[in-house]
Design a protein around this nucleic acid. Structure first.
Lengths: 233, 233
DNA sequence: CGTATCCTTGAACCATGTCAAGCAATGTGG
DNA sequence: CCACATTGCTTGACATGGTTCAAGGATACG
């Protein structure tokens, strides 16, 4: 399941310009390097579940995870995906509460864990780091509030368009123009907030209209403007 | 519209045990007192609108405000209500972005404004204050994520039950057991995320079932356990 | 290479939205 | 403080988007 490996460099994470670690000093960077623990996870492995007590926050060195809440009849509500350089679990550390989401591997991944104390210490010592954390939190909060509005006011079709666009923005496309995220219809439904069958029908409709070209779990966006039209007002 | 009054004491806010100001030192408290500006607002006055650039964050000295986003066809989505001791606007200050919500008076209120610089200074100087801000943000984020799940997965009836319970928890009841928040059916719909008529029908149904006793815009909850049953799983 | 999972489609059903109309309550100006 | 106007509340009838159930075919994966 999970293989330990404490000797991973953080370059992937620290060097990304929007990473939360971008402003660490040399000293802080190397102290972080020695304080963290890393582990490999296989697809479908779980880092922690809703209700677990966690001892630190996590950073993705390689791979993609999905972060979700479990609702009625075990139905998952995907909150977000996270990939290289993204952090998760810090919300629970900051509020000193139990985890309020479950984190599962979408593909084989390498995840680093930084102890809670280290987070609090960095917050105290490095004001730029604090700013970054506050910005990440603020951005997530704004996104969450926007989703509330959208799920409440938009149709399934509009929300699906928005979902495809945001996957496009976050993950980009490969050399054949397919989104860099293999995603099941069921998972699309769990983001959009609808039944799997409705997600399927919406995707089929987009396909029929020549807006996208799905190949199983890979999707190519052909007319992104058509998707944008659907969500502008 | 808005009357200035710079000589308001912050005791209401600072003394509340869950207030963000509870851990300020004497010195910080009095410096805050001299740095802030206060103003009276009438019902329906607006503090700022979505997209405005704001220069500080706000604290409610007296009254109630509603914080919302505007969606398709001008339909409002209420994000939350805030009352005495609550702060708002800090998200935009922390992320150094424009306001992403509109804030409107639900009743005549007194609102204080603290300049952005002061916020950043307090964050730097007082670690307890920082902790409080992080906790407020974290809590709001968790609540927002829960609402995403609930709007996506629950029925209007269930969401209405939850809305009534959370109003009960936040505002409490008066000596006749009515909720301490006068709220229109339309506004209930804007929280729940449904049409006004659906909100009305749901409220009528709760009344018929003896769960609540509405008197115009005031609502008395008779059987809170019935409401709780609706949202437990 | 077989089994589990995922995708697709149709049909029936239901929750919720929309439109329309009348009444009640609330707010405002004279 | 009354009268009128505005806004909010309620209900019915109807439209419809979305869910659910069921069944068969396609893919993915161990």
């Amino acid at each position: 399941m999970m293989k330990k490996n404490n000797f991973l460099y953080c370059d992937n994470c620290a060097l990304r310009s929007q990473s939360i670690f971008k402003d660490l000093t040399e000293e802080e960077y190397s102290s972080l390097f020695y304080d963290k623990s890393c582990a490999s996870y296989k697809k479908n492995d779980i880092v922690y579940e809703e209700g677990n007590r966690i001892n630190g926050f996590y950073c993705i060195n390689k791979g993609i995870v999905k972060i979700y809440k479990t609702g009625k009849h075990g139905k998952e509500q995907i909150i977000r995906f996270a990939c290289v350089g993204d952090i998760f679990g810090f919300r629970s550390i900051l509020s000193r509460e139990k985890a309020c989401t479950t984190v599962k591997m979408v593909e084989d991944s390498t995840i680093c864990m930084v102890k809670a104390d280290k987070l609090h210490q960095l917050l105290k010592d490095n004001h730029n780091f604090l700013e970054s954390v506050l910005k990440v939190l603020s951005k997530e909060l704004d996104e969450a509030n926007n989703r509330i509005k959208n799920i409440a006011q938009r149709t399934v079709k509009e929300r699906m368009a928005e979902t495809l666009i945001s996957i496009h923005e976050k993950f980009g496309i490969d050399d054949e123009n397919y989104l860099n995220l293999k995603i099941k219809r069921e998972e699309l439904a769990e983001i959009v907030g609808t039944a799997t069958e409705s997600a399927i029908r919406t995707i089929s409709q987009f396909k029929k209209e020549g807006i996208i070209k799905p190949m199983g779990r890979k999707i190519k966006i052909i007319k992104i403007d058509k998707l944008r039209e659907l969500i502008e007002y």
